[in-house]
């Protein structure tokens, strides 16, 4: 199970980083979404894995529970990452409306002097 969770975090991170480095807003947003999954699972996993030990206190005497603290942290993180995604989407939309392109690395006047740079990109 540990290997499964760790590999999930790894694959999500790899995909997220790759997409984050693309040149259009939408893939970057997708990449950041993948990355937030990865980070959330990572933080959640830092409380170690356990099965059938929900942190809901049992009325029937002694029971063992999983670590509730990372769960509380991740719960708010999930909601906040939604907020962040929404802000990013809005900024991306705004940039698209204003500049009529969704490229994220728009050439500025300074870069115009070196046009060979953006053909590479």
């Amino acid at each position: 199970m540990e290997l499964i969770v760790a590999s999930t975090v790894g694959v999500l991170t790899a995909g997220g980083v790759y997409l984050m480095l693309r040149l259009r807003t939408f893939p970057v947003i997708l990449g950041l979404a993948l990355l937030s999954y990865a980070v959330n699972v990572f933080i959640f996993a830092s409380g170690r894995l356990s099965i059938d030990q929900s942190p809901i206190l049992s009325p029937y005497g002694e029971a063992s529970y999983t670590d509730p603290l990372p769960q509380a942290l991740v719960l708010t993180a999930i909601v906040i990452s939604f907020g962040m995604t929404a802000v990013l989407v809005m900024i991306g939309l705004g940039a698209f409306f204003e500049s009529e392109t969704d490229r994220i690395d728009i050439d500025t006047a300074d870069d115009a002097a070196a046009p060979e740079k953006d053909t590479q990109a």
């Binding site: 760790a6 975090v9 790894g10 790899a14 997220g16 980083v17 790759y18 480095l21 830092s46 170690r48």
Partner: peptide, 27 residues
């Protein structure tokens, strides 16, 4: 970018696996 992604993913995954296999003092 693929290499960067794989390096980052491999690193984070290995880190996660490393701490998942070890116990922790928790508050």
């Amino acid at each position: 970018d693929g290499l960067i992604g794989l390096a980052a993913g491999g690193g984070v995954g290995a880190l996660a696996y490393a701490f998942l296999m070890r116990d922790i003092d928790t508050i």
